[in-house]
Design a protein around this nucleic acid. Structure first.
Lengths: 154, 154
DNA sequence: GGATAAAGGACTATTTTAGTCCTATTTAGG
DNA sequence: CCTAAATAGGACTAAAATAGTCCTTTATCC
């Protein structure tokens, strides 16, 4: 466990697509069909990424999204922060001083240091790095169109 | 976000208590009253920790739990593994090869490396380390008994 | 044999996450 | 200036994970 949410994982896929198409403006629908993730979900994610400044948006006809800056300048921590709020391994370390077990908790500050270590690991990996390990993925297609595999049950 | 569950956090507090009382056998009730965490919850956690070998248990009258090994030999990763299953930042990296987006996912292997970094951070911190940062905690007491503050709402 | 304590597991409630949809606003282009 | 194509924002629902409780069984001490 200790995992990022599915949505954050999707978000990374979306950013990867935008990074691979930096020159063009991509609509949510474009990105959705390219990645196989449902349109409403893509839309929701890109909105969040827009609010936090990882992508820029253009409204109106021919509008869409673009990566806001170089993939080297976007870290894994940025992505997680944007979609899940600030990285922090325990509740305490986020809203510090508010822990209900404060009087009893003998561990408190301990996790903070773990947190710093994790934070550093996440800061050190950029979107560009994430893309480099990209083995060009075979894509499921039918009649030339990528097939959405979302919502399939195991 | 990207946090450990509340139960794992509690688990660490329990282990900290056992570490501080290595010489004696502590019953679940003892630990509960010392930490202010509800008995059934403590019991559930200690059972899990027993199954995964972080604590040893003695059944019957005067039974209870003891830390299985030196606090230096128990890492944060061990604790998380015991209570949440194997650390892994995405679903894919846990049950690899089973991702439903496999054909479309261009990011896959990327998170794995982030995962390794996090894993390393968690392996490097031992229960003993967690205790060192322990500022002796003031405890809420009433008539000499520690007060459980669990289930208080904000 | 009775009391104490863990083992195991079933069960419920709560919270979080995922996913959808509706309405308003912005912009390009005929 | 009207229409179509987009994003913005937020309400809402459904599903899943988490937290927490309780009950029954088994082991051990005295």
């Amino acid at each position: 466990m200790l995992r990022i949410s599915k949505l954050t994982d999707y978000g990374t896929v979306l950013l990867a697509h935008l990074a691979a198409n930096r020159t063009s403006v991509c609509s949510a629908a474009d990105v959705a069909s390219a990645t196989g993730i449902a349109v409403p979900t893509v839309s929701k994610l890109l909105k969040s990424l827009g609010r936090t400044g990882l992508v820029t948006s253009t409204r109106g006809a021919n509008g869409g999204y673009q990566l806001a800056r170089d993939p080297r300048e976007i870290s894994a921590a940025d992505i997680i922060d944007a979609l899940e709020g600030p990285v922090s391994i325990t509740e305490c370390s986020a809203t510090d001083g508010q822990c209900e077990h404060e009087g009893v908790c003998s561990v408190g500050g301990a996790w903070q240091r773990v947190n710093v270590a994790i934070r550093r690991a996440l800061d050190d990996v950029s979107l560009h790095d994430l893309l480099r390990s990209n083995i060009p993925a075979p894509q499921f297609q039918f009649a030339g169109l990528p097939i959405s595999v979302e919502n399939k049950r195991k």
